[in-house]
């Protein structure tokens, strides 16, 4: 399967979505990500039993925080995809890419670019 997904997406690997904490998601936005999505195994199929269920709740919590500060909780999503389901992975990637493009750039990224226009150390 030579499936492709949009090259705007940067993959960060974690051993289990249960490892993903609120602060990790927040920092991604703080550094200028336009959107973030967490991809876990199917519910009920977590190798560590509840890692993906806990990730789902943390994503929910972080969405609220993002709403509260006006960045927008809809820039963050959680998906559950079977490890072997390549086609669905690439479909979700395109879906998320489209959704974030429709939302436009994150206000954080826009401001970072404006405030640090000549600072090359910030890549957003």
């Amino acid at each position: 399967m030579r499936l492709s997904y949009p090259d705007s997406i940067r993959i960060i690997q974690v051993p289990c979505t249960g490892r993903v904490d609120v602060i990790h998601l927040m920092e991604a936005f703080q550094r200028g990500a336009d959107g973030v999505y967490v991809v876990g195994c199917l519910e009920g199929e977590c190798h560590y039993l509840t890692g993906n269920l806990r990730a789902k709740k943390r994503v929910q919590y972080t969405k609220q925080l993002l709403d509260e500060i006006g960045v927008g909780g809809d820039r963050l999503e959680m998906y559950n995809i079977a490890a072997s389901d390549g086609p669905r992975f690439s479909e979700v990637a395109r879906e998320m890419d489209e959704k974030i493009r429709a939302l436009g750039p994150s206000p954080i990224k826009t401001m970072l670019q404006k405030l640090h226009a000549d600072d090359l150390s910030i890549h957003v």
Partner: peptide, 13 residues
């Protein structure tokens, strides 16, 4: 850490 991140973003916005 979470509050720091949230406040920084709220200001940046």
């Amino acid at each position: 850490a979470i509050l720091a991140s949230a406040l920084k973003m709220a200001f940046l916005k």
